[in-house]
């Protein structure tokens, strides 16, 4: 970290993806959560990120056609 003015919201923003991906250390998680507890601005954006990830996952998901499942079963080695 440089010695210049340090904005805790910037830091929190940088931690958002790794936080959601669960790759932060315990100390970093604590740091993010302490900031979030007192910062409505970042809290909203973290909540949005969660909603956004769920949205994307649902938006791009398409169930497998049942006929395909049957075709895959037929590829098994006959006993």
């Amino acid at each position: 970290m440089s010695g210049f003015a340090f904005d805790p919201c910037d830091k929190c923003e940088q931690m958002m993806q790794p936080y959601m991906d669960r790759v932060l250390t315990d100390a970093e998680i604590q740091e993010a959560e302490e900031h979030l507890a007192g910062c409505e601005y970042c809290r909203k954006r973290y909540r949005f990120e969660e909603e956004f990830r769920t949205f994307v996952r649902q938006a791009v998901s398409e169930p497998m056609p049942p006929e395909l499942k049957e075709r895959l079963r037929s590829l098994r080695t006959p006993l």
Binding site: K44, R45, R47, F48, E51, F52, F55, V56, Q58, A59, V60
Partner: peptide, 18 residues
């Protein structure tokens, strides 16, 4: 509400963007 904000996005746009 941030939970409503996501509703401004469209499913088709997500598929296309990906």
């Amino acid at each position: 509400d941030e939970r409503r904000v996501v509703e401004r996005l469209s499913q088709n746009d997500a598929v296309t963007a990906l």
